[in-house]
Design a protein around this nucleic acid. Structure first.
Lengths: 203, 203
DNA sequence: CGTATCGGATACGGTGCCGTATCGAGAGTG
DNA sequence: CACTCTCGATACGGCACCGTATCCGATACG
């Protein structure tokens, strides 16, 4: 049974309101009540769609990561290989497509911490992150091959990039006005790409 | 005026209780009331020592990071240079000294996210992280020189290592039973050390 | 040993949020 | 157009936490 129009709209409003509340209060301090008030619903509406804020967040996360990876895939496919030749070019391209999302970073970081202390949730997060890395890997590998780099251990590269992304995102956000942080982030990405690839692709 | 004995003991109990509560509930959901109950005090006691949980956490963080850096410094000074020659050895040594602290990671991650959305706090966190990197840098550089690596840009290396530490810690904690995650973490550390240093020290 | 101060206890008034059981309007359906 | 059932609204009972003003006993100190 496909969701009705009415329900789709309700979910949309709840997602939007939840993101705003999570951003303002933090995931931990956000209440069902606040989300509902912002969305213009009563709590009854919330509980007839989700059992908890955890569940709502997981739905949002699934949407979000899928959209992000899709954007990235499109950006890489559309890229002109003549213009993108060095590892640095690749890094800048990916960075431009992914960007630095202040709000989203904070919310996922808090949720991850929350999941780490909540037994059933840890596995769910692990699975989701695994799926993200799994989707990222082929996109990345095929693009690197196009620009002349082979990837001996694609999974290791994907996870390393995710780790670097997370770690440097914090640093950039903590020093929001410091262009050096952004530059250091790109440098580190570049070093990792070079360390995890070898010359030898289609270029 | 130095703090009295009584006060010192009170602070110790509050720190300890707070860590336990933060670990169990998350920083965001921890309440002053829970901390006090666990420490065996009333809320009055709390408020005559701290204005807020933020303030308490900052005190704990200062203690903790100082102790950790001190441990690391001692471990590196005590290391036998004959046994530690490659970048890999350095990485394993540092990793052993720093370790993976589940609880502490979660709490700092949540607090950092909280600080990012709280204007006055963001600068405080930035300053603290800056101080940590600043303390780490000379220790690291002098040790790397002893094992034969020069560091062209020490600050960049220190920040890169902190980023990698943060990013890979999450991955290791999300997959707690996967030794591959630990191995990948060390690999990434090694790659970064190699990329940010050049041959040429005292060795 | 007396006294000043420090620091934890007590008490108060007040707010926000929880999750469920139930109902009824309006969207979906033939 | 009438029927059905989904889904959001209403209403209920209940708990946890907040931050302050005040008090009084322990402790440090001359």
């Amino acid at each position: 049974m496909p969701p009705t129009r009415r329900r789709v709209e309700t979910l949309r409003r709840l997602h939007e309101a939840a993101l705003a509340v999570f951003a303002a209060e933090g995931f931990g301090r956000a209440s069902v009540e606040q989300v509902c008030e912002r969305a213009g619903f009563t709590r009854g509406a919330f509980y007839s769609n989700f059992a908890s804020l955890d569940e709502l967040f997981l739905a949002m996360w699934a949407d979000r990561s899928q959209a992000l990876l899709e954007d990235l895939r499109r950006a890489l496919e559309a890229a002109d290989t003549a213009q993108v030749t060095t590892a640095r070019d690749v890094v800048e391209l990916v960075d431009a497509a992914v960007g630095l999302d202040d709000v989203w970073y904070r919310v996922t970081a808090e949720f991850t911490a929350h999941a780490l202390r909540t037994p059933g949730l840890r596995e769910v997060v692990a699975a989701r992150e695994d799926a993200i890395a799994g989707t990222l890997t082929p996109v990345l590998v095929s693009f690197l091959r196009r620009v002349g780099r082979a990837v001996p251990d694609p999974r290791a590269l994907a996870l390393a990039l995710v780790a670097v992304h997370d770690g440097t995102t914090v640093q950039c956000l903590v020093e929001p006005d410091d262009p050096a942080a952004r530059r250091r982030r790109l440098d580190l990405f570049e070093a990792v790409v070079l360390a995890y690839t070898t010359p030898g692709g289609d270029a």
